[in-house]
Design a binder for these strands. Structure first.
Lengths: 134, 134
DNA sequence: GTGTCATGTGAGAAGCGTTCTCATCTCTAC
DNA sequence: GTAGAGATGAGAACGCTTCTCACATGACAC
């Protein structure tokens, strides 16, 4: 259930299917185009509402930015982690948080307190790296 | 020279003064208001152009986000580092990059290659932490 | 199956931050 | 002083996102 307890409509079912079928990270505009291919007439507002519902349900995450738009991706993980966005194929890989307490030691030593952080990682996923190396 | 080799106008001189006088991170809108207090009539476009010039000159950095706007701050450092934005006083502290090669080891082990990263740190600076503790 | 009601929908306007355009001004080099 | 490159202000335009409103529809009780 991508939307949590929210009501399921035909549009939302379709949007969920398209989101699941997409290879990785996508913007709202890209999703709108992909949905429009299967059902022209679905409004952009509906896309944003569905994305909002999925984010609220915790099945969708904001993983970065592309061309000024929010980059989103399916992610069911609820533990603290970050996302590596492949700049080649747009796939998204969940990675453990690379920050340990030790990493903040210099800042803490200066008296600062770090309460939250946002990390966006960009690079190549394993398969793109393999095919590039070939 | 906040603008690098670019031409200096009275507006840019004023903007540079205001930027220097501001306590820490600010948005374009906040800077526009601050500049307007001393010289009403300076256009928002001029603010954005000046900010762009300062970023190009490497004297200004994008350090995070606030309310959907880009959060900027003066920063002359040219080495690789990140910024801790104090959520209490908006001051900005440059901190060493907390990511080492070891931090990426799990991702690298899975075959991924991380080429770039963006980190935004939020918390309390030393002085705010001291005054809060008092 | 029917009725009710909360919730989702599409279209488009609006809001927001940012960038662009263009005529004009002004700083800088000579 | 002059020429020309570059900066300016005003406001239109842009792109992304959210809101509004009348209407449609799914869920649920009966």
């Amino acid at each position: 259930m991508l939307y949590g307890g929210a009501r399921m409509s035909t549009q939302r079912r379709l949007i969920a299917e398209v989101v699941t079928a997409l290879p990785g990270a996508f913007t709202a505009e890209e999703l709108h185009r992909a949905v429009a291919e299967r059902a022209p007439g679905v409004g952009l507002a509906t896309i944003y509402r569905a994305l909002c519902a999925m984010q609220a349900a915790g099945t969708l995450s904001h993983v970065g930015e592309r061309g000024g738009s929010a980059l989103l991706a399916l992610c069911g993980r609820h533990d603290h982690h970050h996302h590596l966005v492949c700049t080649s194929c747009a796939s998204v890989v969940g990675v453990e948080c690379p920050l340990s307490d030790a990493a903040f030691a210099p800042a803490v030593k200066q008296g600062h307190l770090i309460t939250s952080h946002q990390i966006a990682l960009y690079g190549l996923c394993a398969s793109c790296r393999t095919s590039e190396g070939a």
